[in-house]
């Protein structure tokens, strides 16, 4: 498991033999993966493979067995809030926004863990620079936003916590192709600014284009892994996930 480890730098996230089950039904079996500092790693796979479960377990929303180390420290026993405090932030598939509160309130609450460090206004300016649409909509209630705007708000809210590792669950789900492209451009620019990203996507083509490394998850198990470019050329991946020349299927 050292395919992406560069120059002996410890990875930012190490997951070893992670198991999650819903009651007696296993959802993840012995999943092992890692995310190197400043890299984008993607997990692709079909519906029901356990991708969302994987991110929820890493974020701490679900109990899991196995080893979970983040930023070099074990986090398996710490609650969600403590992981957010350390810079491990999840943008869930359902967005989980505060629907009856304004856009700016949603964003300011994103910086809740950093309330004693100050700098929330600077972070807010950063987010507005990245998502000018959110600045236009700042006074509007989150529940009245369009799908794309909601995804931007979810991303913006996560960025307010100044994450070091961002977990993105299906950021392109249900969005128009134009907005999907925009979201992936933002992922690339986040990576350029040093944020590591673990990206779960059904849009395998776009995910593999933006990622450095990839894993293929099927029925709760990791069946394939490799550099993103290598995975894009793998016949099994092409057959199952890339199809023939369908660009940006949303």
């Amino acid at each position: 498991m050292s395919g992406q480890r560069a120059g002996g730098v410890a990875p930012i996230l190490e997951v070893e033999r992670l198991c999650v089950s819903y009651g007696k039904v296993p959802a993840l079996r012995d999943v092992t993966l890692e995310v190197a500092v400043g890299s984008v790693v993607t997990v692709i796979g079909p519906n029901g493979a356990g991708k969302t479960t994987l991110l929820a377990a890493i974020a701490g929303l679900l109990p899991s067995r196995g080893t979970l180390r983040c930023f070099g420290e074990p986090v398996a026993n710490s609650p969600v809030e403590a992981r957010v405090q350390r810079g491990l932030v999840l943008v869930p598939e359902k967005r989980e926004l505060f629907a009856t509160m304004s856009v700016v309130d949603n964003l300011r609450l994103g910086a809740f863990v950093r309330r004693r460090n100050g700098g929330a206004s600077a972070a807010l300016a950063d987010v507005y620079a990245r998502f000018p649409r959110l600045a236009e909509r700042r006074g509007q209630l989150a529940g009245t936003l369009s799908g794309g705007e909601r995804q931007m708000l979810a991303l913006g809210r996560a960025l307010m916590a100044r994450p070091r590792l961002l977990l993105l669950d299906e950021p392109s789900l249900g969005l128009a192709p134009v907005i999907v492209r925009e979201i992936f451009e933002i992922i690339a620019s986040l990576r350029a600014s040093g944020v590591a990203i673990l990206l779960v996507e059904q849009n395998a083509r776009a995910a593999l284009q933006v990622a450095d490394y990839g894993y293929v998850l099927e029925t709760g198990e990791c069946v394939l892994e490799g550099r993103a470019a290598a995975l894009s050329d793998d016949p099994r991946v092409i057959a199952s996930y890339l199809g023939h020349g369908k660009a940006f299927q949303a």
Binding site: P79, V80, F98, F112, A161
Partner: peptide, 26 residues
């Protein structure tokens, strides 16, 4: 206030509140 909004946020969306680091016990 931020704390007042944090309580409202918890009432609106419990999971969302945890994801921004507002602990249920707080």
């Amino acid at each position: 206030t931020l704390y007042g909004k944090a309580l409202r946020a918890t009432a609106v969306n419990r999971i969302g509140a945890r994801l921004v680091g507002i602990s249920p016990s707080f």
